[in-house]
Amino acid sequence: MAIPSLEGFAAGEKVAASKITKHTKTAIEESVYYKPFCQLNQTTPQSVTTGTTVVRVTFQAVVDDTDSMADLANNRIVVKTAGLYRVTAQMNWPVNATGHRVIRLYVNGGTSRAEYATSGTLSFETRGQVTAYARASVGHEITCSIAQTSGGSLSTATTGSPCWLAAEWISL
Rank of each mutant, 00 (worst) to 15 (best):
residue 34 Y to C: 07
residue 34 Y to R: 15
residue 35 K to D: 00
residue 38 C to S: 01
residue 39 Q to W: 00
residue 40 L to P: 02
residue 40 L to S: 02
residue 44 T to S: 11
residue 44 T to K: 04
residue 44 T to G: 03
residue 44 T to E: 09
residue 45 P to F: 00
residue 47 S to H: 03
residue 47 S to R: 04
residue 47 S to G: 14
residue 49 T to R: 01
residue 52 T to K: 03
residue 54 V to C: 07
residue 54 V to W: 02
residue 54 V to L: 06
residue 55 V to A: 11
residue 55 V to T: 15
residue 56 R to W: 04
residue 56 R to C: 07
residue 56 R to V: 14
residue 57 V to S: 12
residue 57 V to P: 08
residue 58 T to M: 13
residue 59 F to L: 06
residue 59 F to Y: 15
residue 60 Q to W: 07
residue 61 A to M: 04
residue 61 A to T: 10
residue 61 A to I: 03
residue 62 V to D: 11
residue 62 V to A: 09
residue 62 V to E: 11
residue 63 V to D: 10
residue 64 D to S: 14
residue 65 D to F: 10
residue 67 D to K: 02
residue 68 S to Q: 12
residue 68 S to G: 09
residue 69 M to F: 06
residue 69 M to Q: 14
residue 69 M to Y: 08
residue 70 A to E: 07
residue 70 A to S: 14
residue 71 D to N: 15
residue 73 A to Q: 09
residue 74 N to Y: 14
residue 74 N to S: 14
residue 75 N to H: 15
residue 76 R to V: 06
residue 77 I to M: 05
residue 77 I to V: 11
residue 77 I to Q: 02
residue 77 I to G: 08
residue 77 I to A: 07
residue 78 V to P: 06
residue 78 V to K: 08
residue 78 V to W: 02
residue 79 V to W: 01
residue 79 V to E: 02
residue 80 K to W: 01
residue 80 K to H: 02
residue 80 K to V: 12
residue 81 T to P: 05
residue 82 A to P: 03
residue 82 A to E: 05
residue 84 L to C: 04
residue 85 Y to F: 09
residue 85 Y to D: 02
residue 85 Y to R: 00
residue 85 Y to M: 02
residue 86 R to M: 13
residue 87 V to D: 02
residue 87 V to F: 05
residue 88 T to I: 08
residue 90 Q to F: 03
residue 90 Q to R: 14
residue 92 N to W: 08
residue 92 N to V: 05
residue 93 W to P: 13
residue 93 W to D: 12
residue 95 V to I: 15
residue 97 A to E: 10
residue 97 A to N: 13
residue 98 T to N: 12
residue 100 H to S: 15
residue 100 H to N: 13
residue 101 R to F: 08
residue 104 R to D: 09
residue 105 L to T: 04
residue 107 V to E: 05
residue 107 V to A: 12
residue 107 V to R: 03
residue 110 G to V: 01
residue 110 G to M: 00
residue 111 T to W: 00
residue 111 T to V: 05
residue 112 S to F: 12
residue 113 R to C: 10
residue 114 A to I: 03
residue 115 E to L: 15
residue 116 Y to M: 06
residue 116 Y to K: 07
residue 117 A to C: 05
residue 117 A to V: 12
residue 118 T to H: 03
residue 121 T to Y: 11
residue 124 F to Y: 10
residue 124 F to D: 09
residue 125 E to T: 10
residue 125 E to V: 12
residue 127 R to G: 09
residue 128 G to M: 00
residue 129 Q to R: 07
residue 129 Q to A: 03
residue 129 Q to V: 08
residue 130 V to M: 01
residue 130 V to G: 00
